[in-house]
Simulated assay, not measured.
Amino acid sequence: MLTKSIPHTFIRNGYYYFSRRVPADLQGNYSYHRIVQGLRTTSPQKAKVQASITAAKLEAYWSQMRLAKSDVIGLSLVRDSSSSSQKVASNQPQTNCPSLLDALEVYLLHKGKRAI
Rank of each mutant, 00 (worst) to 15 (best):
A68R: 14
L77I: 04
V78A: 09
N29M: 08
F18I: 03
D71W: 00
G28S: 13
Q64A: 10
L58T: 11
S83R: 14
A51Y: 09
F10Y: 12
L26I: 12
Q37S: 13
K57Q: 10
Y30C: 04
S19C: 06
R12C: 07
K69N: 11
G14M: 06
Q64V: 04
L39K: 00
G14V: 06
S19Y: 05
A51D: 12
R34Y: 04
Q50M: 15
I35V: 10
H8S: 05
S84M: 14
Q64F: 04
T42Y: 03
A68V: 03
F18H: 09
L58W: 05
D80K: 13
R34L: 03
Y15S: 14
G74Q: 06
G38T: 15
L26K: 11
Q50P: 00
A55I: 07
S82M: 11
K48A: 14
S52R: 08
S83G: 14
Q50F: 09
S83I: 15
D25Y: 04
K48R: 12
D71V: 03
S31A: 09
N29S: 14
S84D: 15
E59M: 01
F10I: 06
R79G: 03
K48S: 11
I35F: 10
Y16M: 08
Y15L: 06
L58I: 08
R12W: 12
R66C: 01
A24P: 00
S84F: 13
